[in-house]
Design a protein around this nucleic acid. Structure first.
Ligand SMILES: [Zn+2]
Ligand SMILES: [Zn+2]
Length: 744
DNA sequence: AGCACGCCGACT
DNA sequence: GTCGGCGTGCTC
């Protein structure tokens, strides 16, 4: 017996996915001692000159690689698999679908601390958190203890902190912590923190209107059925989608199951968390980019043990393991932030659907403006469609009107009609929201003498004039420079700031409406973490009269007192070359229009444009999503565009102008398209030079996903084995984007 | 991606 | 003489 086991052990070969950008696994001999290797466990292996932590993909008896040259693995780290079985198959599928290196995918799915080799369960680490006493004490008491003050301030952003979180703090942080502990402000524990139900005032279930009740009933039935089904909840802005999700979540809780609630990065607000906690009185964890490594590990662990019943998270939350998952909800499913824009470019919504399938549970996608992909699936019957056509509060949808800029020009972005509407709204003591998707003061600084504009040295773009910071900035590479006194080309003094940004509009409003309280919300005014949330809260609470902002203000936030929404500029998106531009503009306009008139009175929306005849406006005016979606889908079908055809975009960039294009031209030659697959010509990116690199792209389209995948898989395989091709690929930075969101 | 190895320019 | 620049090639 012993002999047999030894033989087994020494002959075992372990197939490991190592976190390197190589589309292959590596074989090792099993370690002589220690934990028995099993699929899904982490393992420490010698790799080149370093040691890495990979994940065991298989334990087998032989290897393609010469046995004599196999290295022996150093140590198995886990006695159980890191991922649950449905997650594991989702990850394997993700790697195949996106043609991504399996090692990178498996690394992406783990909290950083696990990648670094810490124990699966986050136990026995010295951890501190704020006590109720600390929370309710006046922070001014610490004015004479700056370090303690700094530490308490950090607890405002993090529920728990550990020694590693203080490494950048002053060396005497330990003293400060001890002082806080003895004062009773902070408590220390060595064990893993338990997840507790937040002490919040419970909130009662809201009365559902008939449409909500009908959708809720289907969801409850679906959760009880415990089988895969995809539901699309299309509810106009303000129709109370969240309350319908809650009915489904309650059904999952009733059968002791967990719910994953996915929201866009910007939607994970304290209001949402509080609303969930008040409604359910169960342990809730959140997963988002502001968590530190330890908090993230803890949230991951609580989801995995099943202690957390509701997991609210952004894109990466779909990698969380679950003890007993019963439901997935993806709110604002059309939101582009669900698609990862670097590294492994996965779409979290699509992966969540696959994951629901592997768990055999229902998934609910919700939006006021569904993506065309989801909507087409609902129309074809692959998803079940539920429509909420009325606002929950019985408020009417806002009235949408156009302002023809061809007949009444705007000054500082504001037409006479817009100014008049603002005046009337302010006089009625209501809020105004103005939307302009361009931050800064002016997008161009132009010399009226030589007709040249101030350009970025590293990009093919103009520098934006920023009045607040008093700098010229490039929005594409982050370059920042002085505002020139003289033209850089001819030395003339006649520099004119052309075009309107949010800062200019803000200044113009301050002049026109000196009494009004103004708030500008864009990336520049919300640099600090938490500042955006503060500002949105200010707006919600009615502490401001006019909000002017970029798309940061369009996304889902409720501002109950807004009576007028002004869209200052849409024209550059109307005739954009990007195939999703029209879809995105329509979604953006409906979303921003939805901010108006949430209370009893009918809201008003004014859109300024020079192209009042454009067909998009007729459907917008009618709030007719289905009509517009129908038109767009017909166009997409005729062109063979998604969701009727499939795209992959091969991108390349290089400091040398020709190199990126050259690589892609060669790629086009090397690609052997399967039936139904088309490879276009390599072209420069719409803005060719960015941050000093020249960028190019190659579009590959297909009638079938399988053909697209097979074509690219063959090419990648060729690339990995052909030394000449490998050399060319190493000379540029390249990446493969399956289902690209845009062509930029 | 790292990281080592390797082969040419300007520094003590 | 050598320190170090990053081209090239490999990782079971
Ligand atoms: Zn000039
Ligand atoms: Zn730039």
């Amino acid at each position: 017996m012993t002999l047999l086991q030894n033989t087994d052990k020494s002959s075992a070969i372990i197939c490991v996915a190592v976190p390197v950008p190589l589309r292959q696994t590596f074989d090792f001999l099993a370690p002589q001692t220690g934990i028995q290797p099993q699929r899904g466990a982490r393992i420490k292996v010698p790799f080149g000159s370093r040691t890495l932590i990979g994940i065991i993909v298989a334990v087998k008896q032989d290897s393609e690689y010469p046995i004599a040259r196999l290295k022996t693995a150093l140590e198995v780290l886990d006695t159980e698999a890191v991922f649950d079985e449905p997650l594991w198959s989702t990850l394997e599928w993700l790697a195949r679908y996106y043609l991504a290196p399996i090692g990178e995918v498996l690394a992406l799915a783990q909290p950083v601390l696990l990648r670094q080799g810490e124990a699966l369960s986050p136990t026995s680490i010295k951890t501190w958190s704020l006590t109720d006493h600390g929370r309710s004490s006046a922070i001014e008491e610490l004015n004479r203890a700056p370090l303690q003050l700094a530490i308490v301030k950090r607890f405002m952003r993090h529920t728990s902190l550990s020694p590693s979180d203080f490494k950048d703090e002053s060396a005497s942080w330990r003293q400060a912590i001890s002082a806080l502990v003895s004062k009773g402000w902070v408590e220390e524990y060595a064990a893993q923190p338990r997840l507790v139900v937040s002490r919040v005032e419970p909130a009662a279930e809201l009365q559902l209107n008939p449409e909500q009740a009908a959708a809720a009933k289907s969801f409850v039935t679906a959760v009880a059925a415990r089988e895969f089904a995809c539901h699309l909840l299309h509810g106009v802005t303000g129709s109370g989608k969240t309350e319908v999700y809650f009915a489904a979540i309650q059904a999952a809780l009733d059968q002791q199951q967990q719910t994953l609630l996915m929201v866009p990065e910007i939607g994970l607000t304290p209001q949402l968390i509080e609303r969930v906690e008040r409604r359910f009185q169960v342990p809730v964890v959140t997963m988002h980019s502001n968590l530190n490594d330890r908090e993230r590990h803890l949230a991951w662990w609580h989801a995995r043990t099943g202690e957390a019943k509701i997991i609210i998270g952004t894109r990466s939350a779909m990698f969380s393991p679950f003890a007993n998952l019963g439901l997935i909800v993806v709110d604002e499913e059309h939101d582009n932030s669900f698609k990862q824009q670097d590294g492994v470019r996965y779409h979290a919504r699509d992966m969540a659907i696959y994951r629901a399938k592997t768990h055999g549970i229902p998934i609910v996608l919700g939006s006021a403006t569904p993506s065309l992909e989801s909507y087409a699936n609902a129309l074809s019957g692959r998803y079940q469609l539920h429509t909420l056509g009325h606002r929950a509060t019985s408020a009417e949808l806002p009235k949408i009107q156009l302002v023809d800029l061809a007949h009444q020009p705007s000054n500082d972005g504001l037409s006479p009609a817009m100014l008049e509407a603002i005046k009337i709204t302010l006089a009625a003591k209501k809020q105004v929201m103005l939307f302009l998707n361009r931050r800064g003061y002016a997008p161009v600084l132009f010399c009226s003498s030589c007709k040249q504009a101030c350009k970025c040295h590293r990009c093919d773009s103009y520098l934006t004039l920023h009045r607040r910071a008093y700098k010229m900035r490039c929005h594409h590479c982050g370059y920042e420079g002085r505002i020139p006194e003289l033209c850089g080309h001819c030395g003339a003094k006649e520099l004119v700031d052309v075009g309107d940004g949010t800062q200019r509009v803000e200044d113009a409003l301050a002049l026109r409406f000196p009494e009004a309280r103004l708030l500008r919300i864009d990336r520049d005014s919300t640099r600090r973490k938490g500042e955006l949330a503060e500002m949105l809260e200010l707006a919600r609470a009615g502490e401001v009269d006019i909000i002017v902002g970029t798309q940061l203000i369009t996304k889902g936030h409720d501002f109950p007192d807004i009576a007028l929404v002004g869209v200052l500029e849409v024209d550059q998106s109307l005739y954009s070359t990007d195939f999703r531009a029209t879809e995105n503009l329509f979604q953006q306009l409906l979303q921003v229009a939805g901010r108006a008139g949430r209370r009893e009175q009918v809201g008003q929306v004014l859109i300024q444009t020079r192209f009042t005849e454009h067909p998009i406006f007729e459907t917008i005016r009618q709030h007719d999503f289905s009509a517009f979606a129908g038109q767009l889908l017909a166009e997409r079908e005729a062109a063979g565009f998604p969701p009727f055809g499939y795209f992959a975009l091969l991108r390349a960039e290089s400091p040398h102008q020709a190199q990126a294009l050259q690589f892609l031209r060669k790629a086009k030659q090397d690609l052997q398209p399967c039936a139904g697959v088309m490879v276009f010509d390599a072209i420069p990116a719409p803005m060719e030079r960015r941050a000093g690199r020249y960028r190019a792209q190659l579009l590959i389209t297909a009638e079938q996903r399988s053909g697209l995948n097979a074509t690219l898989a063959t090419w990648l395989d060729f690339l990995a084995h052909d030394t000449e091709a490998k050399k060319r690929a190493n000379a540029v930075r390249w990446s493969l984007d399956i289902d690209p969101q845009d062509f930029f």
